Amino acid sequence: MFVALEPRRLYRQVAEEIRALIDAGGIAVGERLPSERELAERFGVSRPTVREALIVLEVEGRIQIRVGSGVYVTGKPAFPAKVLPHDDSESPFEILQARCLIEGAIAEEAARRITPDGIARLNETLERMEASVEDASQALFWDRAFHTAITDMIGNGALNRFTGIIYDSRMSPYFEKLASHFEGPHTWRLAVEEHKAIRDAIRTGDPAGAREAMRHHLTQSQQRFSESFGEEPTRED
Rank of each mutant, 00 (worst) to 15 (best):
I154D: 08
A197S: 11
M129H: 11
L122T: 02
Y11H: 14
A53G: 03
D200T: 02
F229P: 00
Q220T: 10
S169N: 13
I106G: 07
Q223S: 08
P7L: 06
V56S: 07
G25P: 03
W142S: 06
L178M: 15
D135N: 09
V3M: 12
G209L: 03
E31R: 13
Q220G: 07
N123H: 12
L122A: 04
A28Q: 15
N160S: 12
T49W: 09
S137F: 08
A53L: 06
S169K: 06
F93V: 00
L190G: 09
A145S: 11
E232V: 02
H195R: 06
R99Y: 13
Q222L: 09
A105W: 05
G155F: 06
Q222G: 14
T204M: 10
A28R: 10
R37F: 11
E60T: 00
A111I: 01
R62H: 03
V83H: 08
R9E: 15
A136E: 15
R99S: 06
V192C: 04
A110V: 01
A15S: 08
P48F: 10
G118W: 00
Y174T: 01
A139D: 02
A4L: 03
E127W: 09
I166W: 09
E134Q: 11
R8D: 11
E127I: 05
I27S: 04
A208H: 06
A208G: 04
D152I: 00
D117F: 03
F162N: 03
R62M: 05
G230S: 09
L190V: 13
